[in-house]
Nucleic acid binder design. Structure first.
Length: 274
DNA sequence: CACTCTCCCTGAAAGC
DNA sequence: TGCTTTCAGGGAGAGT
């Protein structure tokens, strides 16, 4: 489900509402996620206080005062919800963290592509999740020179490259399509064929798209909701994603849908000529 | 090594 | 209506 803006939205809301809270109780209902949920999570967390919540790539990192961080990933269908004590548990609630004020932080994920792990604060960046991943798109480390060097011997399409988490993180299927549209770059273009000025422009537009989506609290397709069940509305600003057959908002050409590496790509054949 | 394919899983929507 | 097929915002690992 969620790409960078959705995960960022959840982290910001979590920071607002649960930093400083103490964990009272942890209930695990399913441990078979993408990675096995640590078997000791129910015994280790109670009594820990939440110090800080932040994002790296599409991971949510909850730092505790016991020298550990909870690392969560929402996969395609995961949700993190804050519920009050009176609300019932629901289907696919896999982990419920009850806080000292009786509110419950609920990890719910029908497809179970997400993950929950517990790592040492001092060493989590060395873990398999973070040791090899690319740069944050909203930070200076992403620049035209960096991409130029990485792209020079690559033969895959620009869309696949900007979705490659070993190069840059956080850009998934929606925001890749939207960024390429704003940049007037055909998604099938070979990465190494792009000029530095095009790379500059693409980076600028990736940031515009991500920042606008964060402002809108993410995109809601099907079932994405932020922490308190509120719905992001960036989907109203999509130029191409999920708009097959509809008119391009710039030139009125029909938006096309193709398949790249097994995933749908939407683009305007007129605005994004090869 | 670079790249694509397949699979993990459930559920909504489309097709018949 | 109901059954079957396809597709979905991610990512690892296998295969070419």
């Amino acid at each position: 489900m969620p790409e960078l803006p959705e995960v960022e939205t959840i982290c910001r809301e979590l920071s607002l509402y649960i930093v400083g809270q103490e964990v009272a109780k942890v209930e695990k209902f399913c441990e078979k996620l993408r990675v096995q949920v640590p078997s000791n999570i129910e015994s280790i967390l109670p009594g820990a206080r939440i110090k800080k919540i932040f994002r790296r790539a599409k991971y949510i990192i909850i730092e505790l005062d016991i020298g550990k961080v909870i690392v969560m990933h929402l996969g395609m269908s995961g949700k993190l919800l804050l519920r009050n004590a009176a609300e019932h548990y629901k289907k696919h609630d896999h982990l419920v963290i009850t806080l000292a004020n009786d509110e419950k932080l609920v990890f719910n994920d029908p497809r179970r592509f997400g993950l929950i792990d517990l790592l040492e604060t001092e060493r989590y960046l060395e873990s398999r999740y973070f040791c090899d991943i690319g740069v944050e798109p909203l930070e200076d480390a992403l620049n035209a020179n960096y991409l130029k060097i990485i792209f020079q011997n690559k033969k895959s399409s620009i869309k696949n490259l900007i979705m490659n988490n070993n190069i840059l993180v956080g850009v998934g299927n929606i925001y890749a399509a939207e960024s390429l549209f704003l940049s007037k770059i055909n998604p099938t273009s070979i990465g190494s064929s792009l000029k530095p000025s095009q790379l500059d422009n693409l980076i600028k537009n990736i940031r515009i798209v991500l920042n606008k989506a964060i402002q809108a609290k993410g995109s809601s397709l099907k079932d994405y909701v932020s922490l308190l069940g509120k719905v992001g509305n960036f989907q109203d600003q999509f130029f191409v994603y999920n708009r097959e057959g509809e008119d391009c908002k710039i030139c009125s050409e029909k938006i096309k849908k193709i398949r790249q590496s097994g995933r749908s790509t939407y683009f305007c054949p007129n605005c994004q000529k090869l």
